[in-house]
Design a protein around this nucleic acid. Structure first.
Length: 661
RNA sequence: GCCCUCUUAGCUCAGUAGGUAGAGCACAGCCAUGGUAAGGCUGGUGUCGUGGGUUCGACUCCCACAGAGGGCUCCA
């Protein structure tokens, strides 16, 4: 045994290597192809550099750059090279931290004299990074004492701060990436003049990197502290291969094309007039049509799902929000008070207090529960100026808000059927890929007994299990008033959107003294569930626009059919076709022959109308239409009755598929 | 709220060492009546985001503000 390393590979085969062999030797021994792509290794499950000595009798895995872990490593190494380039190009630059993130990496800097990075700087930095990568500099780890570390980073205050905090035992999770737990300071050096605090691992050398792009400069607070210094953050994306990089950049292009703010203008859906004020939108006829259809569908489903419809005003006396606690906990998110004769009024930031009042308007019996109140309730929240984002973050929006009051015994079933309902409605809008999150109690800030938290959390968990819905638990992420489930959907290009939420609330029933009389003739407190399905109608609409890239399915399309007479002579017939379509309940418009046919078709197509009908001489005689359907070949001489049948099938199929999921 | 960038016609964008502006699309009028993705001609487009300042003169330079975009922070 002495003098040899006995390496057991994951595939069961064994390798013998001379003592002191490194991961690189290992990689080389198992074939040149693998050696070439290997950028790190795992030893007994721990990620290590290829250039560390391997222990005897270890289980070793080779990390390739295409793997998730491998990408992480190469992105983090790219961040080091970025810091190296910046410190070389900008005298006096202070570098802080630079982790790998989804799709890439970033590094935060402070430049001397408050200088900021420009686009030209990014080009220069990119060029320098390429030089460093070409230079094939090995990443070499070393460890020094705290004192040595502080001396080494004498002119790097941010690095010193990290070392000091770790030395004083104040390290948090986010520090683990930089400093070893045993008090020693872990360093990586790949050239004499650049060393960074880091636990690694890294790629063996800078030449393993290269498929990257610096994306943008942004401001970021040091350690995320709003009161702390503002740093310059450079974001980059990095991949194992050129093809992956290009694919990623294409995805970004695609996302940009789908941007709902851009499509809202192009498709004439809605606008954000400056005169209205930031974060406020007006809906144009086409956008309003889609919204109406969404809302109508939602109402139908709720009506069939055992919900009671309610309405509540947009303004309320401050006493109400005092009772609900919003004025204490949520004041910053509310619009300033309006002083009136008989009190102080506020725009409502939530519908829940109103629904509590409805519940409380008379004595309730257990026989009435669960009581499900539903409202498309418009609320107003003061979102800080820098946080507004199209329809996704807006200052006035409409929640498809439901509050369900039930007994503890009903909780389990209610949540399970609620989850069914939510997913079924989401499917109707074309979403099929869901991911849920279960947020559990943060003991530091919560109301309610252990017993009720456990019971409710368990009810949520079982509902998720019963659905086989994939979910993650976010420990301690619940609001103070109760645990919750959030549901994300994945859209057509793979992005995730957080939409629906189901939240238990042990707080408002208490604050509003809600109660019901049980079968035991005693008074009990109901549990309240908050549930938003779209979340916000506006935001959901925005997500739909991006999901469908503006090409709404036929049942939602603002215009379902455009009818184009070939020439003016066919105008009357076209009008007759439109009338028939309308009589059949279709949203159809006539596009008069005052432009070339090709032009008119192009315009209708770019408006993403699902069916463009062309009618000419032969159609007038045969009672037919030419059908140019989205994504399909043109078909001539289709009888009007046949077309009506087809579009009905198109619409019905979508809805049937949705409901039965 | 903080950092950076941006703001010129309805939209997308050019532009001037500082001498008050252009293109395409859209829009209007006329011609063309065209069978499946943008026909031709003509025309009008504007307080160059707002308010100050510097200047003989500001769209251009400076300041403030507003709005937008990208981030950070926030989203009981």
């Amino acid at each position: 045994m002495n003098g040899l390393l006995n390496i057991l590979l994951p595939d069961g085969s064994e390798r013998e290597l001379p003592a002191g062999a490194t991961g690189a030797d290992l990689a080389a021994s198992i074939g040149p192809r693998l050696a070439k792509v290997a950028i790190a290794a795992t030893v007994n499950g721990e990620l290590v550099d290829l250039n560390v000595a391997l222990p005897d009798r270890a289980t070793v895995g080779i990390i390739t750059p295409e793997s998730d872990v491998g990408r992480h490593v190469l992105r983090h190494s790219s961040a080091h090279v970025l810091a190296q380039a910046v410190t070389q190009l900008f005298a006096g630059a202070k570098y802080t931290i630079g982790p790998a993130i989804e799709d890439g990496f970033y590094y935060d800097f402070e430049l001397s004299g408050g200088r900021t990075f420009s686009d030209d700087d990014l080009h220069a930095i990119t060029a320098r990074m390429r030089e460093i990568m070409k230079a094939d500099q090995p990443f070499v780890r070393s460890a020094v004492s705290t004192a040595e570390g502080l001396a080494l980073f004498a002119d790097q205050p941010y690095k010193r701060e990290i070392i000091e905090r770790v030395a004083s035992g104040g390290a948090e999770d986010s520090d683990v990436g930089e400093v070893a737990g045993d008090g020693s300071v872990s360093l990586y050096r790949n050239t004499p003049d650049f060393v960074d605090l880091c636990l690694g691992p890294h790629v063996p050398s800078t030449s393993k990197l290269g498929h990257f792009k610096l994306m943008k400069v942004a401001g970021a607070y040091w350690r995320g502290n709003e009161k702390g210094p503002m740093l310059q953050r450079i974001y980059g994306t990095a991949w194992a291969t050129k093809a992956e990089l290009e694919e990623h950049l294409n995805r970004l292009d695609e996302a940009e094309k789908r941007d709902h703010r851009k499509l809202a203008v192009e498709l004439d859906l809605l606008s954000f007039p400056r005169e209205l004020g930031g974060g406020l939108a007006v809906w144009h006829p086409r956008g309003a049509t889609v919204r109406r259809l969404m809302e109508d569908y939602s109402r139908d489903r709720h009506a069939n799902g055992g919900y009671e419809f309610v309405f509540s005003p947009h303004l309320a006396n401050g006493n109400l929000f005092q009772t609900s606690g919003h004025l204490d906990f949520y004041k910053d998110g509310m619009y300033p008070p309006m002083e009136m004769d008989n009190g102080t009024y506020y725009m409502k930031p939530m519908n829940c207090p109103m629904h509590c009042l409805i519940y409380r308007s008379r004595q309730r019996s257990y026989r009435e529960l669960p009581l499900r109140l539903f409202e498309l309730g418009t609320v107003y929240r003061y979102e800080r100026a820098g946080t507004l984002h199209g329809l996704m973050r807006i200052r006035g929006f409409t929640q498809d808000d439901s509050h369900i009051f039930c007994t503890q015994d009903q909780l389990q079933d209610e949540i399970a059927s609620l989850l069914d309902f939510v997913l079924s409605v989401l499917r109707a809008f074309g979403f099929t890929d869901f991911q849920a999150y279960l947020s559990t109690r943060d003991p530091k800030k919560s109301v309610g007994s252990d017993e009720i938290w456990d019971k409710a959390t368990e009810a949520l968990r079982q509902a998720l299990d019963r659905h086989g819905l994939p979910y993650e638990i976010k420990h301690g992420d619940a609001a103070f008033y109760g645990p919750k489930i959030d549901v994300d959907v994945r859209d057509a290009i793979g992005r995730r959107w957080q939409l629906s939420t189901i939240q238990c609330d042990f707080n408002l029933p208490d604050r509003f003294d809600l109660e019901y009389v049980g079968s035991d003739n005693a008074r009990h407190q109901p549990i309240m569930l908050h549930r938003a399905l779209f979340g916000s109608v506006e935001r959901f609409f925005g997500v739909l626009v991006e999901h469908f890239a503006g090409a709404f399915p036929t049942w939602l399309a603002p215009v379902q059919v455009s009818v184009l007479p070939v020439a003016e002579a066919h105008h009357d017939y076209a009008q007759q076709v439109v009338a028939e379509l309308k009589a059949a309940g279709r949203r159809a418009v006539l596009v008069e022959a005052n432009e070339g046919l090709g032009k008119r078709i192009a315009v209708e197509k770019s408006a993403k109308v699902p069916y463009v009908l062309v009618v000419g001489e032969s159609d007038v005689h045969a009672g037919s239409v030419g059908v140019n359907a989205r994504g399909r070949d043109v078909e001539r001489d289709v009888p009007v009755s046949e077309f009506l049948r087809r579009i009905a099938v198109d619409v019905d199929d979508a809805m049937a598929a949705a409901v039965h999921g």
